[in-house]
Write a protein that binds this DNA or RNA. Structure first.
Length: 866
RNA sequence: GGGCGCGUAGCUCAGUGGGAGAGCGCUCGCUUCACACGCGAGAGGUCGCUGGUUCGAGCCCAGCCGCGCCCACCA
């Protein structure tokens, strides 16, 4: 880790610091953040030299955003999650690399550039392939840095100096090698097969890129003649595909049609004789129980067709129009128009028996939004079952752990039923297939084949094919580089749920096959952030919230904190309140630090030097918070990590410790050296603890801390110190806090003026070291004598007796006392009841019964004091 | 159709077997020398419904009601 030019421990600088600190009563993210980002980037801290092995180091490969994309809430959340892990482990002293890069994102990027061309009045066809691809690279040069800048604004400590792109030369070479190797292993093959054709992008797409959408259709019941007499009625929502029917199927057990099986039906309009076949797939209770079979345009029919050796006729082409095989007058018409004509013709023949409204789901392209046209096409496929087996084992035996647990089974189920993957895409932007043809010959190899007359396959690979290599191709694979040695396998893969199959599963398969090891040990599937009203966050709905806007409004620390605090094992609604909470936290920490830095004695460096019970208490609480943070991060429980940090800073450090420290700190005459050292030490520990969550404000404060050198982000911090856990101090201070709260509540309710000290006497145990603090924080004027009490306030371990002389409403005081007495009596009755229950005493664990007894005793003492 | 998950304070959510919590919002009070993006004190909940297990259930089990997401080839 490179040393950096941080705060030099030159005391003269502190004069400048003091003025700045005194004047800045609020933390100003917009002023601080750019400065801090620059220092981080210039330090080289995020760019470790590769050394050692992955077992010693810590690494994460960022899910590569689309190269022309911009930061959305999902990126911001995932960036925060990964950065917390990265910063935490970097501060544990590990060599830590967060691999950065972008994805060429075939369809998405090509579509964007095509749209830009259309706006210029031209098209990719006019430009030609070569020129078009140049245009995309130009587009990338122009827009490719947006997302990087945005990640930097978030504070993400990615290795920006070592950026990857899935179309870089080295990366592309890795992709080609994988394709060729898989081909040679027989796992990649070319086939004429029914694919999901996306008329929008004019390309085949994989099953995973298809979504189902509900539509209202008409279900037509159409009567077919059977040769030799008789007829059969089938139902369809796509009458135009009748032209491609090559069979009629019934269920083998369906007695209504038993005599039809084996005979020949006649397809209307085209008068094609086709067999009537029996297949288990047919549902006898749907429609008439007879099904038209169209292998050329329906996935189920395709399977049935292959099973029964049926002819495969295509009547719809890749342009979405009826082709020549459809015959006159349909050829050339868009499929939907052809449908109307077919219905009309059937109607004319009196073949439409019924038409009924039919609500169902149809496949739609996730990319273009257009309805999928299943059609038979010559494409490249990848057989997955062989690669899936070891990837299933890796998750089963825990070499890859998936969090939350529920996603594990989802992964296994999908992998168990994995199907071949159509990897070729009819696009220009991407990795062109390393495949050449000459007549009937096919050549697959890293270099173009020798000889004349070869033409290269124009198709490119599915973007996810190259993404699947991300964790190792980014590190130099197939070369055995020091980076690959040092950082593969990576530690954690954090991602959204929707690409668990699309990406994560395929990385595991490819990692095992080509890099010889799982690509990561833990998969964290983070929440999907919905709009505050529960709808999907989307640009088109107008429900999107731009994380960069939020950073500008509230600061990056606030956004990070908010997102982490929101995150959960399920989907969550975006909570502006949580972001504000993060902003308050940053501001609070800033001001608490001002208090400490401006109040301590000059020339004192941070060091643990506890003098009082609260000094020991805060030290102990810091350790507990460290442990909490470590546990939460181990379990990927980011919301509790963030909220726990908030609770510590607000609820313990600021509300109590700093308040308790004030009299000593403001006592100019006293020797405040130990206190100063201790206070600074607690501050330093807090900054270290908080830094992974809110790196900007903590880094900024760090630069003002006496004796602090370099960057906080690069500091290797001590782990928790068990010796500083102090149960006794914690119990005492807890008791004191409870007492102060009780006394303040009493004051408020009986109308004691806020500034007024109340004469009082302690009648309770357990305040040996805290009485002075209790008296000060509750504004009591403590006395030994003073005669009979005029009122009494219950506190843990007894009561505080209020003596004559204070101004308050005695009637209200009595009411309050009565109320409390009744409460205590109720509790006592309950405890007595419980302990009188033989079942409880006999069966409950001894420590539970004991605790109940102790509590009862405490309550009885309290009642006596009242 | 299968799977996962959720129903707790006005809102967003913690809490997985022994005294119902947080943030925001709301009410009251406070120019207390770090912070008014502050401090202090409060009000507010038959923990979806019904049954069961248990000495004891917000938490475990079953059923029901409501909601979300994922997967899936009923024409």
């Amino acid at each position: 880790m490179a040393a950096t030019s941080g705060f030099a421990p030159d005391r003269r600088l502190r004069l400048v610091s003091r003025e700045t600190l005194e004047s800045r009563k609020r933390f100003e993210p917009s002023e601080v953040e750019p400065r801090i980002v620059r220092r981080w980037l210039e330090s080289g801290l995020f760019s470790p030299e590769p050394a050692g092995t992955a077992a010693d180091n810590y690494s994460i490969a960022v899910p590569p955003p689309n190269v022309t994309g911009s930061l959305h809430m999902g990126h911001a959340l995932n960036g925060s999650v990964q950065d917390v892990l990265i910063r935490y482990h970097r501060m544990r002293g590990l060599r830590t690399k967060w691999i950065f890069g972008t994805d060429h994102a075939g369809i998405a990027t090509q579509t964007k550039v095509e749209q830009a061309l259309a706006a210029e009045g031209t098209s990719k066809e006019e430009l030609g392939r070569e020129r078009f691809i140049e245009r995309v690279w130009e587009w990338r040069a122009e827009h490719g840095s947006t997302i990087r800048d945005q990640f930097q604004r978030l504070g993400a400590s990615l290795d920006y100096r070592d950026e990857r792109f899935t179309l870089d030369e080295d990366y592309a070479a890795a992709v080609m090698k994988v394709f060729v190797d898989l081909y040679e292993k027989g796992l990649i093959y070319r086939d004429r097969y029914l694919v999901n054709w996306d008329p929008g992008s004019r390309s085949a797409i994989s099953d995973l890129e298809v979504v189902q959408e509900e539509v209202q259709d008409v279900l037509y019941h159409v009567r077919y003649d059977v040769e030799g007499g008789g007829e059969v009625t089938v139902a369809t929502v796509r009458p135009e595909t009748i032209l491609a029917d090559t069979a009629v199927a019934v269920h083998p057990g369906d007695e209504r049609y038993a005599d039809l099986v084996g005979r020949t039906a006649v397809i209307p309009l085209v008068n094609r004789p086709v067999p009537v076949i029996a297949d288990e797939y047919v549902k006898p209770d749907f429609g008439s129980g007879a099904l038209k079979i169209t292998p050329g345009h329906d996935p189920n029919d395709f399977d049935i067709g292959r099973k029964h050796g049926l002819a495969e006729i295509s009547v719809i082409g890749e342009d979405g129009r009826m082709n020549e095989a459809a015959g006159e007058p349909y050829a050339g018409l868009p499929a939907l128009e052809a449908r109307a004509h077919v219905v009309e013709a059937l109607e004319a023949e009196g073949r439409i028996v019924a038409r009924e409204p039919h609500h169902h789901e149809v496949p739609v392209s996730h990319r273009s939004g257009e309805r999928i046209e299943p059609l038979i096409s010559l494409q490249w496929f990848m057989r997955m079952d062989e690669l899936a087996a070891p990837a299933i084992d890796a998750v089963r035996d825990g070499r890859v752990r998936i969090h939350p647990e529920g996603q594990r089974q989802v992964y296994l189920d999908w992998m168990d039923n994995i199907r071949p993957w159509c990897v070729s895409r009819q696009l220009w932007w991407g990795h062109q297939l390393p495949v050449w043809y000459r007549g009937e010959e096919t050549y697959v190899g890293l270099e173009a084949p020798e000889g004349e007359g070869w033409t290269r396959d124009p198709d490119v690979l599915d973007t996810w094919f190259s993404s699947a290599l991300w964790p190792f191709a980014t590190l130099g694979w197939p070369r055995d580089t020091p980076a690959l040695q040092a950082f593969y396998p990576t530690d954690v893969l954090s991602t959204a749920r929707d690409i668990l199959f699309l990406w994560v599963a395929r990385m595991i398969m490819m990692g095992l096959e080509f890099a010889g090891q799982v690509p990561f040990h833990d998969v964290y599937v983070h929440s999907v952030i919905q709009a505050p009203d529960g709808r999907r966050m989307s640009k088109s709905l107008g429900t999107g919230i731009d994380p960069v806007d939020e950073i500008e409004r509230h600061g990056a620390d606030a956004v990070r904190f908010g997102l982490l605090a929101m995150s959960s094992s399920q989907d969550v609604r975006y909570s502006p309140a949580k972001v504000e909470q993060g902003q308050q936290l940053a501001n609070k920490l800033w001001n608490a630090s001002r208090f400490a830095l401006l109040g301590v004695q000059e020339d004192v460096d941070p060091a643990p030097r506890p003098e009082t019970v609260e000094d020991r208490w805060i030290l102990s609480r810091v350790q507990r918070t460290k442990r909490m943070m470590a546990d939460c991060l181990t379990e990927f429980d980011f919301s509790h990590a963030a909220l726990g940090l908030y609770d510590f800073v607000y609820g313990e450090l600021c509300d109590w410790y700093l308040e308790m420290v004030k009299p000593r700190l403001y006592d100019e005459g006293a020797d405040r050296e130990a206190l100063s050292a201790h206070l600074l030490f607690v501050l330093a520990e807090t900054l270290e603890l908080a830094h992974p969550v809110i790196p900007f404000v903590t880094e900024e404060i760090w630069s003002y801390l006496p004796g602090a050198e370099g960057l906080l982000a690069g500091r290797a911090v001590e782990g928790l110190e068990p010796a500083w856990i102090d149960e006794e101090a914690e119990a005492q201070v807890q008791r004191a806090m409870d007492a102060v709260r009780a006394l303040r509540g009493w004051r408020d309710s009986v109308g004691v003026r806020p500034g007024e000290a109340v004469p009082a006497r302690l009648a309770a145990e357990g305040y040996e070291d805290t009485l002075e603090q209790v008296a000060r924080l509750a504004r009591l004027d403590l006395r030994q004598d003073g005669g009979d009490p005029v009122a009494s306030v219950a506190v843990p371990g007894g009561a505080v007796e209020i003596l004559a002389g204070g101004a308050f409403d005695p009637a209200e005081a009595d009411r309050r006392l009565d109320k409390r007495r009744a409460e205590v009596e109720r509790e006592i009755a309950r405890g007595e009841g419980k302990l009188a229950n033989e079942g409880f005493v006999g069966k409950a664990p001894a420590e539970v019964v004991e605790a109940e007894r102790a509590k009862l005793e405490r309550l009885r003492r309290e009642l006596a004091e009242l």
